[in-house]
Design a protein around this nucleic acid. Structure first.
Lengths: 238, 238
DNA sequence: AACCTTTACTTTGGATCCAAAGAACAATAA
DNA sequence: TTATTGTTCTTTGGATCCAAAGTAAAGGTT
């Protein structure tokens, strides 16, 4: 049972349902009934209906022709496509930012992200908590760039495509081998961030775009990056 | 008062509201109240609430911090961004299709669109009805390409970004000068379609992508294309 | 007279009730 | 025995009611 918001004691039905789906409680392909979900979340059917509609537009649910919703299932190709879509859009954002010029504030933000990433790398290895640190860091870096373009249209377009279940970092299994892989992936991602930052600073729009598009592929599990096997979950949040 | 659906006598609240907004009945920046809209459309507040949520995700409405929704207003830069977003995504679709290879069925579809475009051009001038013919034709061409990629993820990403009010062709003023401009624009668009088709047929992915991205800009009013003045409405639907 | 507090009203979000559409099942006829 | 039709039940969509939160206004106090 998901916890309610402290602020008003209300349950965020959308978030809860999204969680249930990404946890696999509602399996891909499964039919979702309003009443069933409502009872499970202890709310009435109305907020569930609203949530269904939202999640449909996010792409998590699919309206069946006749009636009702079904949990959408994603193929490996879907994952790759989602990554490419994100790359295309963030690439667009990067190009615009480079052409527009990086303000001092954004420059400082990005530099901060990079130095924090540097600090993480210097330790030479990762512990479990570092994963979360990196996720936040990475998110900040990307958000800063997208935000700095100043275009809500682009920002929203990216946000709208960032709801697929494999875009969450929750499902990483953390053992030593995984930490090693993560470390390698982190090194790569950090290097790419540096390059993107360089291109942005120099105002090299086309290069910034290209680098950002390439960078998106790191969302696929590192180690399977070049073979594209086993791409069930990406870990490069946002 | 919008007409109800013949099928079940029900009113499509989302479509009606979208129409009201694009017609300017609800002006950009205006606060939208559930009750007010409900009374205007002669429905209860519930479907309006559903519609608000949908239209918010489409980007037509904006949730204000405190409460309520506001009709979103789009700047000229927003229009340009939306065009570039579409270009980026359709470019992606075109590249994928080229790399995957065009099936005979899709090849036939595209050829059909091209020959119908050719027929339209051969007349040497346009009449009012031709505008609609071209709009359909153009839509078919783009839909065929996006559909042929076989990726719902990409398809949906494009669909989600195709709801902005300026993406509709309704607002073209049709006088002789406008028809002349449309004819010129049509020639250009047709030529671009031909090039895209060529690249697709040859399996030239990068080129197809580039051409498609460029083609997106024709969504801005032709004649103001190079100066980017007066870009309030685009006419290249879908 | 200005500011703070309290109260009333506006507006949104949630719950329950009702109607209609679709699906499943059963019964009857061929 | 199978197919078709009618009936019942499930499930969704809409309407109305209720509660809570936020806003505005009015009155009191300093």
């Amino acid at each position: 049972m998901p916890e309610k918001s402290e602020k008003n004691g209300r349950l965020n039905v959308i978030a809860s349902l999204r969680k249930l789906i990404s946890e696999g409680v509602y399996a891909p392909g499964e039919r979702l009934k309003e009443l069933h979900v409502a009872e499970r979340l202890q709310v009435s059917r109305m907020p569930v209906r609203l949530a269904f509609r939202t999640l449909e537009q996010e792409g998590l649910l699919q309206k069946t022709g006749t009636r009702g919703y079904v949990v959408r299932q994603f193929s490996e190709e879907d994952v790759l496509c989602a990554v490419e879509v994100r790359g295309a859009l963030e690439g667009l954002a990067a190009r615009r930012l480079a052409e527009k010029g990086v303000t001092e504030e954004v420059d400082a933000q990005l530099r901060d992200c990079l130095s924090r990433g540097e600090a993480l790398l210097e330790k030479g290895h990762l512990v479990k908590a570092d994963i979360e640190v990196w996720a936040t860091l990475n998110q900040e870096f990307h958000r800063a760039i997208v935000g700095a373009t100043g275009s809500r249209v682009i920002h929203d377009a990216i946000a709208r495509n960032d709801h697929l279940p494999f875009a969450s970092a929750d499902s990483i299994v953390i053992d030593d081998a995984a930490l090693d892989r993560e470390y390698g992936k982190l090194r790569m991602a950090h290097a790419q961030h540096q390059l993107v930052f360089q291109a942005l600073s120099r105002g090299e729009g086309a290069r910034a775009e290209m680098l950002m598009r390439e960078h998106a592929y790191i969302g696929l599990r590192y180690g399977t990056l070049f073979g594209l096997g086993e791409v069930g979950h990406a870990t490069d949040a946002k």
